[in-house]
Design a protein around this nucleic acid. Structure first.
Lengths: 195, 195
DNA sequence: TGCCTAGTTAGATTATTATCTAATTAGATG
DNA sequence: CATCTAATTAGATAATAATCTAACTAGGCA
């Protein structure tokens, strides 16, 4: 019945978490762990919501090695077009042509620069690669939380011994900012451009 | 917060009963009793849903004597435009200009032809009035249900002793149709033009 | 083969909500 | 004023669903 479908669609969108997931995915695909991190929810909860979103065809997924990326199906969204497009406005992604390809490229770079147990082999010289590595490291920090310099150092050192250089790069790249030796992630939507 | 509003809107639409109410109101205002009758729910339940619909501005109401008529706010619906417009397509209501006035006119006619305890005083001679009366009686039958002639007779007789005439009029007016002495409401949206 | 990581499934808990009955409010009407 | 009808409010019940922890599954990779 057509009516049931419409109700299901709205019921799916009638939940804050799912709307958040949608607006995140509007800026490009993400995997489950990333979503869980951003929304500060557990993996099963994310999984729960994603199945609901998949049920009404708002989201599709695609496996890449060990991790599954979730894509927003914008056609459906536009079909039911529900005011969302306005609030969910994409960031200035001029050529989002192949977001997927971008992800894989990033993944490859990370694979090259990190060891299996997650340590950074060397600090990349190439600016772009360096940024990708820095973003990756920063992605494991808690958004909104303040880190004393000592704590941040220890954290960075778990990736690479030259924590001083890396810490400075995080500031220069405006991924973090510092106030009285207290560090914090920059509030700007850091997940927008990178995985 | 804008997000909360969007969620609230969808949550409101994520319920079968409320979608039904909306698609009924799309064909013109109704009062609470009428809605309760059509949807076979109690008055408090209808009231509950209507307050929710009013909360998100999908419905407004207007009191007329003792009874309150509920109007669909089509602007909001179009603003959030949610696939509903398609399924909720108005019937060919050319001059809906004053639906409200129409309602009151009908009410007056019904008041004139029915006694306080709901019996039909006389069968109207004027075609238009007769139709209104017939629709009113038919509105108490169950859509989609098949009535054996005997049962239908008894039902009609609860309004007026000349059940044979009324039964024939229901067929002539194509409000009902008959197959092998089994009667059924015509499937066309009978609530569109009346009540 | 055997571990590691990402996701899903199961089950429990808690919060929300659709629905009902009973009681109450608000107008209208005789 | 007394009564009637329509609507809302209060309170109870039962169903749905969001979230968590714990256990399980399924690919990579050493």
């Amino acid at each position: 019945m057509q009516l049931e479908k419409l109700v299901a669609f709205h019921k799916t969108l009638g939940d804050v978490t799912r709307i958040r997931i949608i607006s995140i995915l509007a800026n490009g695909p993400k995997n489950g762990q990333a979503l869980a991190g951003i929304l500060k929810l557990t993996a099963p909860t994310i999984s729960h919501h994603l199945t609901k979103l998949k049920d009404v065809n708002l989201v599709t997924d695609r496996r890449e090695k060990n991790t599954v990326y979730y894509f927003l199906n914008e056609d459906v969204l536009e079909h039911y077009s529900s005011g969302l497009p306005k609030m969910v406005s994409k960031k200035g992604d001029s050529n989002k042509m192949d977001n997927q390809k971008l992800i894989l490229e990033h993944k490859k770079i990370l694979d090259n620069f990190f060891t299996a147990d997650g340590r950074l082999k060397t600090i990349p010289a190439q600016r772009k690669k360096k940024m990708i590595v820095l973003y990756h490291i920063a992605s494991l920090l808690e958004k909104g939380r303040k880190y004393p310099e000592k704590e941040l150092n220890e954290f960075i050192q778990s990736f690479h011994d030259d924590f001083a250089t890396l810490r400075r790069e995080l500031i220069i790249g405006s991924i973090m900012y510092r106030e009285n030796s207290i560090y914090e992630l920059n509030p700007r939507e850091m997940w927008a451009d990178i995985v």
